[in-house]
Design a protein around this nucleic acid. Structure first.
Length: 502
RNA sequence: GGUCCUGUGGCCGAGUGGCUAGGCAGAGCUCUGCAAAAGCUUCCACAGCGGUUCGAAUCCGCUCGGGACCUCCA
């Protein structure tokens, strides 16, 4: 089976063939640490964590680079050219780097909560000013950028004469120029007049006196432009041409389009073989974003401290919620949807716990060939579905098909002999690999508490004795009190009792 | 205004022209001292109108609705 990836650049599903056999270079646009991450931010990081994990499952060696944008991007010229990071810092009376540290820490905390594997390299923009400057110099030398008043701009028109500018984002240069010209009339004229053409974008920006974050450059003191950091760092760590570049769909233009232009000029080759873009998380049908004022921060998500939330949601619930839809579809947030995911995930995980305890020996021939085939088929499809552009929702659907079978095997509703030992073992192995290793899901309750376990064993033992004596007052008292404490107990068909927190 | 995406049952969501995705919620049943859990069964769909086709949620056209990008944005 071979992995196919939907390539945003060609708008087709393509067979994935690494540039260097056995190795994969993957770059994902990381967070701008000028504020707290919200639910929308969770999507790309969970999505590409799955990609990272799955590529490794496929026995590929992956170098996963995800940057931290800590230099702060200025806003569009025509408005105030202020550095977002330093602006906020002044408001909060913090050093810019103090702010950067705070939000970087918060971001890392959230990633850990989501059980996202750390990237191989997590470079910062401020740590690569030198690389960015030399890349800009290179572009100037090659004649595709020009300096004006200490700022450097990329010459889009010149680039577009011989390259496909706009292909990734489906844009036509003439439209951009027209739109730009129209804008410049109604907007500010100052910043615009510096550029030779409205479609040009900044590589380096001269810093006004009040700008705190500034670096020396051949063009005077300033700070890097919007897009150059990703190009510089991707090139440095992954080379001129690498496999996968990921990010949110909203980065297609201008960010990724510009990255392609810059890198192509510097490296004489298109930087990326497969462009991957995740879709947005919406809330009431609208993209979650600062400008819409409809964000739910991750801290609010995990604490339930938000008007739209009826309760706290565990990071694994959110992760599962994200995996239940395909990464290229919009995903509509709602409290009810999260509640549904919470229950669904719990049920699935409990089935998995049950599955781990099942065993059979020496049953070579299944008594129910049809069922045995079905199980094998569902299990085989895990990989087939993932190979088809990471269809996590389909894999989950199959897991839910398997859940009743697993539970029935345990309860004896389906005799163990109905499926072969091989089938059972394969089911156990694959279910675990996909649920834990590929999907990165993990247990959410506290059954592993070393202190609690013997206490629970004792209580359940007493309750069992009471039940045998038909002393239901005592047995119900234990059960009800435990329920009140948040511990749910379940009487199993085989006479045993299981329990769980939450 | 330009470019593109999208409209699936109470909610969230898969859907490659023909075979009920799945989850949550609802209803019934089985099991159970009672519950919970589990199992089984079941209700509720493909925005509208045309067209192509033996056959369309799936392809085409139109209408209506929603959204994204064109500005930092996951």
């Amino acid at each position: 089976m071979a992995l196919h990836i939907y390539n945003s650049y060609t708008r087709n599903k393509e067979l994935f063939e690494p540039v260097t056999p056995g190795h994969v270079g993957m770059y994902v646009c990381g967070p701008t640490v000028s504020g707290e991450s919200h639910l929308g931010h969770a999507r790309p990081y969970v999505t590409f964590d799955i990609v990272f994990r799955y590529l490794q499952f496929k026995n590929l060696k992956v170098r996963y680079v995800r940057n931290i944008t800590d230099a702060g991007h200025f806003e569009e010229e025509g408005r105030e050219a202020e550095d977002k990071v330093s602006k906020k810092a002044q408001l909060e009376r913090l050093e810019p780097m103090e702010l950067v540290q705070k939000y970087t820490n918060l971001f890392h905390w959230a990633m850990k909560e989501f059980n996202c594997i750390e990237p191989s390299i997590e470079p910062t923009a401020t740590g690569h000013i030198v690389e960015q400057i030399s890349m800009i110099e290179d572009i100037i030398t090659k004649g595709y950028a020009y300096e004006v008043n200490g700022s450097v701009y990329f010459d889009v028109k010149k680039y577009a004469a011989h390259h496909d500018y706009g292909k990734l984002s489906g844009r036509i240069l003439e439209d951009l120029i027209e739109a730009g010209n129209r804008e410049s009339v109604s907007r500010d004229l100052e910043g615009q007049s510096e550029k030779r053409d409205s479609a040009d974008f900044a590589l380096w920006k001269a810093a006004p006196p009040e700008h705190i974050m500034r670096w020396k450059s051949p063009w005077g003191e300033g700070f890097p432009g919007w897009h150059i950091e990703c190009s510089a760092m991707a090139t440095k760590y992954l080379g001129a041409h690498f496999d996968i570049h990921g990010g949110g769909m909203d980065l297609l233009f201008p960010h990724h389009e510009s990255e392609i232009a810059q890198s192509t000029i510097c490296n004489h080759t298109a930087p990326v073989k497969y462009w991957m873009h995740n879709n947005m998380i919406t809330i009431n049908g609208r993209k979650m974003g600062k400008s819409y004022n409809n964000v739910i921060k991750l801290t609010e998500m995990f604490s339930g401290n938000h008007p739209l939330l009826t309760q706290a949601f565990h990071p694994m619930t959110v992760r599962f919620f994200i995996l239940q839809s395909h990464y290229r579809s919009t995903l509509d947030f709602g409290n009810d949807a999260l509640l549904a995911s919470e229950k669904a995930f719990k049920r699935l995980w409990e089935a998995y716990e049950v599955l781990k305890k099942l065993s059979s020996e020496g049953n070579d021939i299944p008594s129910d060939k049809e069922l045995d085939d079905k199980v094998n088929n569902w299990v085989n499809e895990f990989e087939i579905f993932m190979d088809d552009d990471f269809s996590t929702p389909k894999v989950i659907a199959n897991m839910f098909e398997l859940a009743p079978v697993i539970n029935s095997l345990k309860d004896g509703i389906i005799p163990m002999k109905n499926i072969s030992t091989n089938t059972l073992n394969r089911l156990k192995e694959r279910f675990g690999v996909f649920l834990e290793d590929v999907f990165g899901l993990k247990n959410t309750d506290g059954n592993n508490n070393e202190v609690l376990k013997p206490v629970m064993d004792l209580l359940l033992d007493i309750r069992k004795e009471a039940k045998l004596k038909k002393d239901f007052v005592t047995s119900d008292k234990i059960r009800n009190q435990l329920t009140a404490m948040g511990i749910v107990i379940k009487d199993e068909k085989d006479g045993g009792t299981s329990w769980g927190v939450g």
